[in-house]
Write a protein that binds this DNA or RNA. Structure first.
Lengths: 352, 352
DNA sequence: ATGGGTTGAGTTACCGGTAACGTGCCATTA
DNA sequence: TAATGGCACGTTACCGGTAACTCAACCCAT
């Protein structure tokens, strides 16, 4: 009996004096409720092994003291994994990825996970650095944009041994799991469609920025289809700038001045295509009469046009959701189909 | 000497057998390098108190074993704060906030912090729940959108005792710090401008969604200016939908059918204004001849129009950057001006 | 030769939780 | 009645680092 009292006294000192911050800890709650912190822990995790009265006393003290659990400590002690999911996307300026991100975060947060953002690929080597940092926080999983990573990234991911979803591009041999679409096929589809429309002289305007690999794959598929259709891809313009309205505007201007015989231009994305349309309006070039214009990615913004933009529809939100779903399934131990192809859809608009 | 060997042997057992995951821990590195883990810790933090030879041996083992530090443990042991910054924004669908977020993340990541995303305000009470969760991760600071929070949120923030920046709206008495603009003044400015253009019959179309308080403040300022200018704000339409093209399109249709005498409409944002312009084009209503249209927020997308949209320019990126800067300053202990007004600028376009 | 400061370590205790195990107490049951 | 078992807790040890302290060796000045 006397030992017990001594123990309580010590516990009080421990709980009240030793916390550096003035935060309420579990032992303080436990002490206030007159139980051991293990019992308090059991109550909070609803693990069983306590009486209703004890439960009520503990919960009352939690409420009264405004106790907030320290998840850092819990992770540290427990299963060694946090509820963080690291999500790396190249850029938020690109509207496409904001939709992907939204899809991801909606799904993740619904299941008690937190998105830790990483805007990488603006600078080379940034992804590698970011992955190192985020791994040091013991995340439950990662979602990475793109399928090509630095060799050291591969190593780190293997060592970390956690679920990883690569999104945007598709890979037959993903590192772990993969959600995206066949960009090359989408470019090919657009190429074939434009060939079928009778065009002979093709142009392409894109950038070096962005998820460049995916765009390059689209261009490759496009070029292939054009060649197969006896057309000529006269000019491929790759600007060193972000893909947006302005790059589209000036890109098409530049392309037309060096290859005026171009009949139709395929753009890296809808934003650029719309910049081009604005250029044509400003210069009195009729679309599609004088010049055909095709975009990629079907942004809702394109609906501002009085006519429908010819483009490729991709369900961005679904990419994000599917990626998050795969990750959650893997985390909960279910077996998961490693590759999901969300596909694409050619939108036959009125600009070609 | 024999004691030391024993200690090493024990340490090996400890390091190799006791780690649940197969991860490399600091003690394993230390053991491999033949030093204590404290020394290894000193080397890794470059804290001094070790010889160059020891340093090299430790770093070599770090490299060889692919050691990744466990920040969770470090935070737990050390100063009890992580490098996480919780960022709550209402919605990524709204392009405005993606720019804010980009500004935040760029700045934060440059200083070694991680953005933990929270998409709240879609559902009431969501913010409160999110704050509880994110606080349990011992973040270094928070950035919250909006200045009105649930009472429990106030309590939790006070208890957590960390830097908080409220963004978007301005508050004379912020919880801690504040970056934004005077939405009411911006609405008033637009109202005055439209009055000065000779309009008498005004309309407004917005939504209940979104950072509703800010939009409501704009409407309030707008209505005040209209009244002061002897104009009449005939119709205020508040839709229960997300503010975007479609809501703009159908909103203006609905407004005109119930108040056809309206001469000019102020929209909650540029997206809606552009939807309205599309409606007008489709219906043969001349802008600004038959109907004036004004937006808010100056989205780059508005540059697609052959004429410039009358709107209010806000430097979204700068809001994010300024918020991040304030937070970083506070974290590093500097004194910070609690309120930053990023201002706004009326863009006199060609749509009124 | 002695004392004091510096240098390069090692030792101990602890952060706030949780897993694993131990321990009274009471109700059953053989 | 004694053995048994389950319930409601308490104890201990530990996660992977770091702060604070200790300690031996060495250098230099007295």
């Amino acid at each position: 009996m006397s030992t017990k009292k001594l123990s309580i006294t010590f516990s009080r000192l421990d709980a009240d004096l030793n916390n550096k911050n003035n935060k309420i800890s579990l032992s303080m709650v436990a002490e206030a409720a007159g139980v051991s912190k293990m019992t308090a822990s059991r109550v909070l995790r609803n693990e069983g092994g306590f009486s209703p009265q004890t439960r009520d006393r503990v919960l009352a003290e939690v409420e009264r003291l405004g106790y907030l659990p320290n998840r850092i400590a819990a992770v540290f002690s427990g299963d060694q994994k946090s509820t963080f999911i690291g999500v790396s996307i190249p850029d938020l300026g690109n509207e496409v990825f904001t939709h992907v991100l939204e899809g991801i975060d909606r799904k993740l947060s619904a299941f008690g996970h937190q998105t830790v953002l990483g805007m990488t690929q603006r600078v080379a080597g940034e992804e590698e650095k970011w992955i190192g940092t985020v791994l040091s926080w013991q995340p439950a999983g990662l979602i990475l944009t793109g399928v090509s990573h630095a060799p050291r990234v591969q190593q780190m991911l293997e060592a970390a041994d956690l679920p990883v979803v690569e999104i945007w591009e598709l890979s037959a041999t993903p590192f772990d799991m993969c959600v995206g679409l066949d960009h090359e096929a989408s470019g090919r589809a657009m190429g074939r469609y434009l060939v079928s429309k009778g065009y002979k002289h093709f142009g392409y305007v894109g950038t070096h920025h962005d998820a460049a690999n995916a765009a390059a794959a689209r261009l490759s598929g496009f070029g292939e289809a054009v060649k197969a259709g006896e057309g000529r891809l006269k000019k491929q313009l790759l600007l060193n700038d972000v893909p947006g309205f302005y790059t589209g505007y000036y890109g098409v201007e530049q392309l037309l001045s060096s290859a005026p015989e171009t009949e139709v231009v395929f753009f890296q994305n809808d934003n650029m295509a719309m910049g081009a349309i604005q250029f044509c309006q400003a210069k009195g070039i009729s679309v599609p009469g004088d010049l055909g214009i095709a975009g990629w990615g079907e942004l809702p913004i394109a609906s501002v046009l009085p006519y429908r933009l010819t483009t490729v529809r991709v369900n961005h939100l679904r990419i994000g959701q599917a990626a998050a779903e795969k990750l959650l399934l893997r985390i909960s131990g279910d077996s998961v189909d490693p590759v999901t192809d969300v596909g694409f859809q050619l939108i036959e608009g009125e600009t070609v």
